[in-house]
Design a binder for these strands. Sequence first.
DNA 1: TTTTTAACTTACATTTCGTAACTTAGTTTA
DNA 2: TAAACTAAGTTACGAAATGTAAGTTAAAAA
Lengths: 105, 105
Amino acid sequence: MDQKKICPRFEKALKILNHSWNTLLIYQLLEGPQRYSTIKNQVGISSRVLTERLKELEIENIVERTVIPSTPVVIEYKLTEKGHALAPVLKAIEQWSSMWVNIEE
Amino acid sequence: MDQKKICPRFEKALKILNHSWNTLLIYQLLEGPQRYSTIKNQVGISSRVLTERLKELEIENIVERTVIPSTPVVIEYKLTEKGHALAPVLKAIEQWSSMWVNIEE
DNA sequence: TTTTTAACTTACATTTCGTAACTTAGTTTA
DNA sequence: TAAACTAAGTTACGAAATGTAAGTTAAAAA
């Protein structure tokens, strides 16, 4: 009657990618390593949620956090190999949006 | 100082796709037209949110709703051309997940 | 006449999110 | 010596989104 045949890996991928902000953060980091404040300003996310999401992406091994002992201390975030491997997904979304999404009101 | 150069079409695409459940619903509908109750059972979403999301996807012209005057009335949902055009996005996620996502705890 | 079915709605509790102010530690500046 | 500044968070709190479960509607089968 009820069969859930959706692949668990795929489901988990969707869970990560669908969590709000995550895709946009990955997209932003595709431009290269960036510090916390840069990401915050570029993406327009609150610090509370940004910290939360970066931690999640770090745990998922999509993002890597590096402390640069300058003064004041700077923290750099960058994509891991796993994170970079998401580029085709973002490209596909970009292509779809340029083809099908129009903005008017 | 603060520059947001992200393309508005792309941003809108992310907004739609990142809205919880939407990607999974589209993935489910890629299998073919389906009625409300089938989607609900397969995806495991609450009826409150399912109704809401289907309405949103309909407004975005990604999903089409058809009333089949059987008894009791059956409602069929299916992807539009714009909706089907999202297949490459889902494929890319599927590929990434099979390559990089592992599930253990 | 009661029950059943599909596709929703509604009420309500829980969770998540956004906003804005605060913290920490070292460093210039007054 | 004290006040101010900086980066990267953290905290408190109200607002919005979500899940749960029960209710609704209309027609038809039992």
